[in-house]
Amino acid sequence: MIQISYRDPRPIYEQVKDGFRTLILTGVLHPDEKMPSVRELATQLAINPNTIQRAYRELEQEGYICSVPGKGSFVADAGDTAALRKKELLMRLSEICAELRSLGVEESTMLEYIRGGKQHD
């Protein structure tokens, strides 16, 4: 399901977290679907269970999954993940706008692009 790469400089818990976040946001994992148990993942990926727990804990704090005591973790509600996806895309948009502004692009020009009317020259 997710892959751990030892060449990746990110810590392993971040790789696990980012891997699942992508699977959830792209809809590979459906809302209310059960996440693999910590034991399953530890056995399958041969990584430390505390690392997985940490990734799950942070995914839960960020609202991607919710844990039900005694039953495991589940992918959060569709409305919630859609809201998160929106927030993430808007963050990226604001970064792009900031860079365009520093390059001297007028806001009116940006707006034309945002409204979708303007194509490349």
């Binding site: 034991r39 530890a42 056995t43 990926l45 041969a46 990584i47 430390n48 997985i52």
Partner: peptide, 8 residues
């Protein structure tokens, strides 16, 4: 995998 599964 077996050891870490046991740890979990």
């Amino acid at each position: 995998g077996l050891i870490l599964g046991d740890v979990a």
